[in-house]
Design a protein around this nucleic acid. Structure first.
Lengths: 151, 151
DNA sequence: ATAAATAATTGAATATTATACAATTTATGG
DNA sequence: CCATAAATTGTATAATATTCAATTATTTAT
């Protein structure tokens, strides 16, 4: 056993996918060269960042999902991007938004279970310099990345 | 002008992408048939739902992003899934989670601008039967779908 | 512990698809 | 209205996915 599956999942989080030009051409009833040209243009313009997979996280053993609302320590207030750049490297963090309102940061986290989440919290408070965090645990993921996820 | 670009963007939200088997095979130093077999297995098991694009939403004219926390009217309390199934069809809604805690629903919304968001709010309160909503506007999207988005 | 059954890996052959290129058409700015 | 750039398209080619049969590894039952 080589456990290729988990390697694939990691690759598909970062990309390693590509558009199906022929299929799109059939669907839109346009020549595949036209589709090809337009896709390359979208990529060139930076409108499309990459292509990746959409997972059923429960099935791949990452069923524990939490929204984390974090506040920074006052001394870090002036430059949130310094911290978010660091958080962005965290493999458990699916998304990061710098927001207006009560909490400066909104993170979406995916871990295997509560235990792993708890470990993350302990580590992060220290590592990222949060003054306070509030969390909201997902009981059921209905839609993700514009796709309905049937659990 | 046929405006193929916007059609492509819509298709890539739902899928119309596919893994790059040859590239993955080179990367992992495994035969492409082995990679192919393992990917098909992941798909068969439902672990991979589909493949799609990751966008720079600002560049495609959907730069306004809001997290919406909604509460249901008490009479809808017992069956949130009835409403979320309906919300899932909403093209402005990127993700839906049924959560524990103060708010039953967490939505991630993407609209062109504040105006479009305001129209959505007015429509949704009525249409989806929210008793109350709180929102958090994203000022900067740092990471999305496990990918760093450089604005 | 061993045989039988099932699952995973692999290479060779084929079918399908993406890409490069040149030509044509369409849009744009002075 | 002309000149220039951008977009569309068909043909040819290169690259890729997929099928299939065979081999190897793993699991299950006795």
């Amino acid at each position: 056993m080589k456990d290729i599956a988990s390697k694939l999942i990691n690759l598909f989080k970062q990309g390693y996918c590509t558009p199906q030009i022929a299929r799109i051409a059939r669907k839109l009833k346009e020549p595949s060269t036209t589709i090809h040209y337009n896709i390359k243009k979208l990529e060139r313009e930076g409108k499309i960042v990459t292509y990746g997979a959409i997972f059923d996280y429960k099935k791949i053993g990452y069923g524990y999902c939490v929204y984390v609302f974090a506040n920074l320590k006052p001394e870090k207030y002036d430059n949130p991007e310094e911290i978010t750049a660091k958080i962005a490297k965290d493999p458990y963090v699916e998304s990061i938004d710098i927001c207006s309102g009560e909490h400066e940061l909104v993170l979406k986290l995916r871990t295997r279970d509560v235990d792993e989440y708890y470990e993350w919290v302990k580590k992060s408070i220290k590592l990222y310099g949060f003054s306070k965090i509030i969390s909201l645990t997902s009981l059921k993921q209905v839609k993700d990345g514009f796709v309905e996820v049937g659990n």
